[in-house]
């Protein structure tokens, strides 16, 4: 049943800007670095000849963790808005389909869209480096994979939280503001303790125990999603 809810959701998000967001966000991140490296290529070549890849990843780190959090916000809001925008929660829930599968399908779709972005980012980073003539032999493939996927895994609790809230509440402006605030505060919170979920997207790449943060993100994300699902089951739909 969830599979069918999922495929109907896939149909519903056509032309809503969701795929566009998933494609443009990683390309935008790389375009920013193309500008950065394009303008000062000689400087980089001179200064960091042996660690061009490391420089690229270092410049991208903060932007990736920010974009992942913003992406969670926007994907959740756009996805929930498919139903809010046409006031069609009623119609959807009148179908012979359980609420938990409706919720699970939405969550799976948002996770898939984010993962798609991450895959694009990983491929794009490799293509970016090679087309700028970074040496293939020194390509830190593991770091690239880690930068592309681990911040996303660390941000899972926020994806689950924001998606639940966006589905529950009609007024998306509040939620987008909350998401933006979370994102911006996360830039300033790195000195806070590491158990704070706000730090997980960044620490999942920067710290020396990335798996720990990624796993914490997945487990907490699943727990938050479950809570959201339980609340959605009980919600009165008008």
């Amino acid at each position: 049943m969830m599979g069918r809810a999922f495929s109907s959701d896939l149909l519903k998000i056509r032309r809503k800007g969701l795929w566009l967001l998933a494609i443009v966000a990683p390309l935008g991140l790389l375009a920013m670095q193309a500008l950065n490296f394009g303008l000062r290529y000689d400087y980089f070549l001179e200064q960091y000849e042996d660690e061009l890849w490391e420089q690229l990843l270092q410049y991208m780190t903060y932007f990736v963790s920010m974009s992942v959090l913003l992406g969670c916000t926007l994907v959740s809001s756009l996805l929930a808005n498919v139903e809010h925008g046409t006031s069609s929660w009623k119609q959807l829930l009148a179908l012979p389909i359980s609420r938990s599968s409706v919720f699970a399908a939405k969550f799976a779709l948002s996770a898939l869209l984010m993962a798609f972005s991450c895959v694009l980012l990983a491929i794009g980073t490799v293509v970016f480096g090679l087309s700028f003539g970074f040496p293939l032999s020194s390509m830190p493939l593991w770091d690239i994979v880690r930068l592309s996927f681990f911040p996303y895994l660390g941000a899972m609790p926020f994806l689950a939280f924001l998606l639940s809230m966006c589905i529950m509440m009609r007024n998306q402006a509040m939620l987008i503001t909350i998401g933006v605030t979370i994102t911006i505060v996360s830039l300033f919170s790195t000195s806070a303790p590491e158990w704070l979920p706000l730090n997980w997207p960044l620490f999942a790449y920067l710290s020396d125990k990335p798996f720990w943060f990624a796993a914490a993100g997945i487990v907490t994300g699943a727990a938050v999603a479950l809570m959201g699902m339980i609340r959605f089951e009980r919600k009165d739909v008008a």
Partner: peptide
């Protein structure tokens, strides 16, 4: 763009 969140997404990016 007759959607609430889509213009916001562009703006934030």
């Amino acid at each position: 763009w007759s959607s609430f969140a889509a213009p916001l997404a562009v703006n934030v990016m």
